[in-house]
Simulated assay, not measured.
Amino acid sequence: MNQIKQIIQTFNVTRQHDPSVVPAVALGAGGALVLCLVLGFVLGPLLLWIPLALFAMIATALIILGRKAQSASLAAIEGQAGAAAAVLQSMRGAWEITPAVAFNRREDMIHLAVGPPGVVLVAEGTSPARVKQLMAKERRRFDRAAGEVPVTEVLVGDGEDQVELKKLAFHMAKLPRAIKPKEVGPLNRKLSALKASAPPMPKGPQMRRAPKKYR
């Protein structure tokens, strides 16, 4: 029952930000149902295809809802300070995320992500030039501490050589692997001395994770 309530809540919240979720879910689920029933008529026996059709309809609806919910969450936080940190913290897998290991009064921030690619410094801010200066300073610190583990820079934004917020999680997942998942924790602890006292993060909308059933 709790999962059903969570799905209904996710649907209602998503519909407020993106009304197209209603026709998208309806068309997708309906299309899956019709396709399975047509296959049942053609290949038979139809009675065996009916349960499969119902399962396909529900699964398709949940997949579409999950993707729409993620897009709505990104739209809600985009442009806010700390938005990149929210996306990083929503990632699945062997990642250790520390928001705002470096920051300034203009809300430029460097976030630390330790994972299979090694050390990844993710920067966000309103001025690319200012963010690059902050990144260069932090890169030197983490290069010394990381030793032979690679340190990768990622700048979040819409400009050249930057990664859009909506593509950040995908970009992180595609980075070349450098260390094993079991090495992530020890490396993160090794770098803990370099972590600054994080500023208070904004209380705006947070990145919401889709329920496990349709992630």
Rank of each mutant, 00 (worst) to 15 (best):
E96S: 08
Q162E: 15
N104S: 11
R92S: 13
A146M: 06
F170C: 01
K132W: 10
R141F: 02
D158M: 11
H111K: 07
K180C: 08
I97F: 02
G125M: 09
L175D: 11
E148T: 14
D158V: 10
G185D: 09
P176H: 06
D143S: 05
A113F: 07
W95T: 11
K167T: 03
S127L: 13
E160H: 11
L165P: 00
P150Q: 08
G93L: 13
R92L: 14
T152I: 14
R140I: 10
A146Q: 05
P150T: 08
R140Q: 08
Q133Y: 15
P128A: 12
L175Y: 09
K174Y: 06
V120G: 02
P181M: 13
V101G: 00
H171W: 06
E164M: 01
A102W: 01
K182W: 02
R141S: 01
F170H: 02
K166H: 01
K180P: 04
E96Y: 10
A145I: 08
L165E: 00
P181G: 13
P181K: 05
K182L: 06
G93M: 11
P99I: 00
L168I: 03
E96A: 11
A173V: 02
P181L: 14
G157K: 06
L134R: 05
D158Q: 12
E124W: 05
V119P: 15
L168N: 01
A136G: 09
M172Y: 07
K167M: 03
I179S: 07
V120N: 04
H111A: 08
W95L: 14
V156M: 03
R139K: 10
G185H: 09
A169P: 00
K167D: 03
K137Y: 10
V154E: 03
L165R: 00
F170D: 02
L112Y: 02
R177M: 11
A146W: 04
E160M: 12
M135D: 08
L134S: 09
A173T: 04
H111T: 03
E160I: 07
F142V: 01
R144F: 06
P150N: 07
G147K: 11
K137P: 04
E148C: 05
V114A: 11
R130D: 12
A178D: 07
Q133R: 15
R130H: 15
H111I: 08
G125F: 12
E183N: 11
R106T: 14
P99L: 00
A136T: 10
P176G: 06
A113R: 03
E160A: 09
K182D: 03
